[in-house]
Design a protein around this nucleic acid. Structure first.
Length: 109
DNA sequence: CCAGTGACTCGGA
DNA sequence: ATCCGAGCCACTG
């Protein structure tokens, strides 16, 4: 069965809704979670992102997309996400956390 | 069907 | 840091 386009959009929105305030994800990261390409994620947000915290989705390098760049940085700053020269620190506020489970003993040295 | 475009990403220069 | 090409997926003329 081929997944309906609307279903893919809903999957994208569902993941975006899961991004906690103060955190940020990327098109590619979300794409991997829902099983589509980053461009497909961007398309979904451009189409109906108004219903989800789209501002918590940035580029892979932490920068914001052109058409919403200024707006996105303001919304992020409003919820405690600092930006450095127009880019957020994905290593600090990136979501989901990398390799959180199955690794209770991080390399302490 | 082909070409152009876009809230993308990676690798190379 | 900046620009370009290729890969990618969906839409439009």
């Amino acid at each position: 069965m081929t997944p309906d386009p609307r279903d893919v959009d809903e999957a994208v929105f569902d993941v975006v809704e899961r991004i906690p305030a103060g955190r940020v994800s990327s098109y590619g990261a979300i794409g991997e979670l829902v099983g589509v390409g980053p461009r497909r994620v961007a398309r979904a947000l451009a189409q109906g992102g108004a219903a989800v915290p789209w501002h918590r989705v940035v580029r892979a390098d932490g920068s914001a997309a052109e058409p919403v760049r200024a707006r996105q940085l303001e919304l992020l700053a409003a919820e405690g996400v600092p930006a450095r020269n127009g880019k957020v620190d994905l290593a600090a506020v990136g979501w989901p956390d990398r390799a959180t489970p199955v690794r209770r003993r991080p390399p302490a040295g």
